[in-house]
């Protein structure tokens, strides 16, 4: 594997590569503007992609949030997640009268090492901020917006759950760019589950279910496509925007998003049990549905 110069820690640079030249208007979405002091680790704004306006949300791994000691270097804390959620809601609001083909896409540029594990975060309720951002993205999707996520660096655990995993389609730079997609590094998994680290390393080479990396997630249906060259990013994103828009126009939204990725996982052989469980439940419910529907 040839290691390439990647984009880890370079969220702002990635925006520059992905968007049409010089179109990035930070902290602005239509008529709404954001206070730059709040959530410095979350970079939001409007760009043009292939000529049309799009909302972009990225992580700034160089930023530190002075108000929250556990939030630094791209960690998504409460301010960041709330800000990202608001960016999504303003996007929905801005295009609410428009038909599907004119609703602006949302591009999530993912490079975050995690959520903030702090005391104040627990007291105030970090889970609401992350959950809130997820719901906002899910709503955007279901209202016809196309949401594309592209992993350029680290996509870790709960931070990836809220910033990435609700997208219609998820792309990722390949492992040559040191992208990291996982819940936890193997050393931590080993320590917590008390499973032998050598065994885990051995298994992780072949079993995508806990191995770290874009290629494994692709097999599981967690990533739609792996991008092999940085310069291919804009083109690939545009391709996916168009594809997803077509599905939404045709009323085939179930082919995208988390559910769509579930189907992919089944197709690609990475998550085969899942579908059979859901089908079993459907079958068994059919046998008793009458009792419940006609109580």
């Amino acid at each position: 594997m040839e290691i390439q110069q990647g984009l880890i820690g370079k969220g702002r640079e990635a925006i520059g590569i992905i968007a049409d030249n010089d179109t990035f208007k930070e902290n602005v979405i239509e008529d709404y503007s954001f206070d730059p002091e709040i959530g410095p680790g979350a970079v939001i704004g409007t760009v043009n992609i292939n000529g049309e306006a799009a909302t972009i949300i990225a992580n700034d791994a160089m930023a530190i949030n002075p108000k929250f000691p556990v939030v630094y270097f791209g960690i998504i804390g409460m301010e960041e997640a709330n800000k990202m959620a608001m960016a999504v809601y303003y996007t929905i609001e801005a295009d609410k009268e428009k038909p599907i083909e004119e609703k602006r896409p949302l591009i999530l540029v993912v490079d975050t090492p995690g959520n903030g594990p702090g005391k104040v975060e627990e007291i105030i309720g970090m889970n609401k901020a992350t959950g809130g951002y997820q719901l906002a993205l899910a709503e955007a999707r279901k209202k016809g917006h196309t949401v594309i996520a592209i992993v350029i660096g680290r996509a870790i655990s709960g931070a990836f759950l809220c910033h990435g995993l609700q997208a219609d389609n998820i792309l990722s730079l390949s492992k040559e760019f040191q992208t990291m997609i996982h819940v936890m590094p193997l050393t931590s998994i080993s320590r917590i589950t008390k499973l032998d680290i050598e065994r885990l390393e051995e298994l992780s080479k072949v079993n995508p279910v806990f191995a770290s990396g874009a290629e494994f997630f692709e097999k599981l249906g967690g990533v739609e496509e792996v991008v092999k060259k940085i310069e291919d990013m804009p083109e690939t994103i545009i391709k996916h925007i168009n594809e997803v828009r077509e599905y939404k126009k045709a009323g085939q939204a179930e082919k995208t998003g988390p559910w769509g990725r579930g189907l992919l996982g089944d197709q690609r052989g990475g998550r085969v049990t899942r579908m059979s469980v859901i089908e079993k439940m459907n079958e068994e419910y059919e046998d008793v549905a009458e009792k419940y529907l006609k109580a």
Binding site: Q134, S157, F160, L161, L165, Q166, H182, V183, M184, I189, I192, T193, L195, P208, V209, F210, A211, F216, F217, L220, G221, G222, P258, R261, G262, G265, R271, R274
Partner: peptide
């Protein structure tokens, strides 16, 4: 953690 990726995707 034993099935971390599948678990994460299920959450979404």
């Amino acid at each position: 953690l034993h099935e971390s990726n599948a678990g994460l995707l299920a959450h979404a």
